[in-house]
Nucleic acid binder design. Sequence first.
DNA 1: TTTTTTATGATTAATTTTGATCGAATTAAA
DNA 2: TTTAATTCGATCAAAATTAATCATAAAAAA
Lengths: 250, 250
Amino acid sequence: MTFQKRAHKILELLEEFGEVEIRQLATKIDVSEVTVRRDLTAMAASGLLYRTHGGAMKISEVIKPVSFVNKAASNIKAKDAICKRAAEDVIDGDVIFIDCGSTAFRLCQFIKNKKIKVITNSLPVVNELLDSAVTINLIGGEVDVTRQAVHGITAYEHIAKYRASKAFLGVDGITVEGLYAGSEHEASNTLAMALQSDCVYMLCDASKVGKTSYLRFNDLSLVNILVTNYNNPDVTEFRTKGISVLSVTV
Amino acid sequence: MTFQKRAHKILELLEEFGEVEIRQLATKIDVSEVTVRRDLTAMAASGLLYRTHGGAMKISEVIKPVSFVNKAASNIKAKDAICKRAAEDVIDGDVIFIDCGSTAFRLCQFIKNKKIKVITNSLPVVNELLDSAVTINLIGGEVDVTRQAVHGITAYEHIAKYRASKAFLGVDGITVEGLYAGSEHEASNTLAMALQSDCVYMLCDASKVGKTSYLRFNDLSLVNILVTNYNNPDVTEFRTKGISVLSVTV
DNA sequence: TTTTTTATGATTAATTTTGATCGAATTAAA
DNA sequence: TTTAATTCGATCAAAATTAATCATAAAAAA
């Protein structure tokens, strides 16, 4: 029995059962377990199967970590912690802006039962708050399909008509030098909301703090309160710039 | 039972129940709780699930896919026939208003692949057209939760800023005497859209024609074209009033 | 034929996996 | 708030699996 014949047999069994054990294979093919192990190692190297402890699996049966991983998902805990803390400051009667973006979105779950007005340009936020106690004001304008949010001049003018007590915003990067966005549109919305709010909360998980991005759209003075899980000595730099920093632990 | 198999099983259970407890998993997979805990930790690190105290939760997608639903229950066949006929008049380059309401909603499926701009205050319409060829302009303002649409003064002003070649509207009732709506808000939106359009299409299934309702908000002159499955001799009355009537059969 | 290479099997040490235990941390309850 | 009950993370030990080493047998090359 040559290697090629064994490989063929193994692939057949794999196709049939989805997985195989070394013990079984050794008996079935009538070779030693050592040989089977060697075969599997070679086949795995060629990408014909996925090697597991004690056997092998069909490639398609395996959870491919890379394709499954939602990069942002790993930060969900941080984002939730940040938003939970931020939500504590929201009181009945507030009128608040909620930015689009994955961080600010997670604020929704914590404010669902408050008697407040929410002004937002984010469709997911609207969807999430539809069956809640809050009153929703949706900012109008052109819909950015990829971002699932409304942008553009009309949106900007719409925002300018309202006044809120608090704004919960996100950015792509924040340093002591200023605020960074990934696009003009994002920046324009975030800026407009900030300008129309008494108190600006910036929600940034650790991956955003100290990072720069495509466009520096404003200096740090726009921000009143930074909520973050970034627990590094240099948050004091933000404090010296007059920003209140709310540190949360994940 | 290898880690891969357990992971597979855990993800399945997670998909089904949304959350799982370590105790349950240990029993179900027949391994110790320690092992389950280790599995969950590993999977959480890869972003496959959201670790909680005592178990795990399904990771909610970063941005929950927007899913506004339109419970267009009655007369779907008639409404589809009407909208199919109306959609024939929509050509590339058009800018069109689409009203909220179950009838106008069904126009979406027929215009998805046209290169047009759609201005609407209906959340289900936006949702339906998100992954299509059309450019969407969402009218801003206060969100009417029950109607899943945007209403109010801001919405009215927003509409007034745009000009469209065609408007596809619905009403609660239409007679030779005029147009009837179920509420002030509906009427205000429908009227605003009509005033900003070169050609006004009224989409009415047979149950609406010849019926009156709560509020008569305008006379018939607002309408250019009536699309309906109402096949009754007295549609001629509409024609004598200067309305083109497009009759469809179901 | 002889030598060299390759494939296989046996043996053993290293690694991985699993389960148990215990103090620390977290959550729930009083 | 304090207290009690879980749950967690770390460490350790046992079992299983693997990788490495070596010896033998078969195949290929000289």
